[in-house]
């Protein structure tokens, strides 16, 4: 048993270890987080003589702005990438899971988009999705699939979906690896046991594998929906928020930093940030609870 002096010194040591991190994260993460809530209640501009507390006015302005609701709608719509990511990543994981020759090379290929920067990826896809000169339309026309090019990024019926495709494509490799890890952890005996019971491979998969990897499914869904709600770079690079592709974060950016779209307003941008935070928190809490309930109930 340690003396109380020993315990005190251990406490001191602990805080000495923690100090640098606590200071850096406190100053550059916690403080601005608190600051965001504060600024959202102010009419604020640096060095301006008119700075004043306005209560919830920024929120009411945001909520009365049709542009905000449009952005919110698009952000919620963007969550449709989540099921796509979960299903495709799981499919991909099943495809690359067995240890057969060249498998590492294939996995690596599928993982390449994950390590590359979105700015470049988005630009590469812009070259592909261009209406008149894009690779995709040229191929579609040559193969006779389409008579003329589809305006992938410049019509309201397709633009948002096109950008979502790129988001899914970019992330698949990452979630694929998560699923590979999960699948490896499923004991072979279990699936063999179910086969002996006369179940087909599909039944075995649904009744044995899926429940076993469900925590990973949940985790994947949560991580990918958090990042879906924060999508920005794809929009910035591919459509500039035009043709019905403004999302919440893009709207925050233009409100806070883009003077070419009108005067900037830090208070309103922060209010939108708070609403985004609430949305993410609310959505993930509900999603986690719902998804955890699926197998723990029975």
């Amino acid at each position: 048993m340690k003396s109380s002096a020993g315990r005190d010194s251990q406490t001191l040591t602990a805080w000495a270890f923690l100090a640098p991190t606590v200071i850096v994260m406190g100053l550059f993460q916690f403080l601005p987080i608190l600051g965001a809530f504060a600024v959202s209640l102010w009419d604020y501009f640096p060095d301006s003589p008119n700075n004043r507390f306005v209560g919830l006015r920024n929120f009411s302005r945001v909520l009365h702005d049709p542009a905000f609701w449009e952005a919110l709608k698009n952000s919620v719509l963007y969550l449709l990438v989540v099921p796509a990511i979960v299903l495709l990543a799981l499919g991909l994981a099943l495809l690359v899971e067995p240890a057969i020759p060249f498998m590492n090379a294939f996995r690596a290929c599928y993982y390449v988009p994950v390590v590359t920067m979105m700015v470049v990826v988005a630009y590469a896809w812009t070259l592909i999705f261009n209406t008149d000169n894009g690779l995709l339309n040229q191929l579609l026309v040559r193969w006779g699939v389409a008579e003329r090019g589809v305006p992938w990024l410049t019509s309201e019926s397709t633009a948002l979906w096109t950008v979502m495709t790129v988001t899914v494509w970019k992330g698949l490799g990452y979630y694929m690896v998560m699923f590979i890890v999960a699948l490896k952890a499923v004991p072979k005996e279990l699936s063999e046991a179910s086969r002996i019971d006369g179940a087909g491979p599909l039944q075995g998969f649904l009744n044995v594998t899926i429940p076993m990897i469900w925590p990973t499914v949940t985790l994947t869904a949560v991580i990918s929906s958090i990042s879906a709600l924060q999508v920005f770079e794809e929009i910035y690079m591919m459509t500039n928020g035009r043709v019905g592709t403004t999302t919440l974060v893009y709207d925050i950016y233009t409100t806070g930093f883009d003077m070419s779209r009108g005067a900037i307003d830090f208070g309103q941008a922060c209010a939108m940030g708070v609403l985004l935070f609430a949305l993410i928190l609310g959505f993930t809490t509900v999603a986690v609870r719902r998804m955890q309930g699926v197998y723990s109930a029975n």
């Binding site: 209406t131 008149d132 000169n133 305006p151 990024l153 410049t154 019509s155 500039n240 043709v243």
Partner: peptide
């Protein structure tokens, strides 16, 4: 006129002109 004109910035027509389109 091109359907991408709805979002095009002045760089795009220049690019199209330069490529002979």
């Amino acid at each position: 006129v091109p359907r991408d004109a709805v979002t095009a910035t002045h760089r795009i027509p220049l690019d199209q002109y330069k490529t002979g389109n």
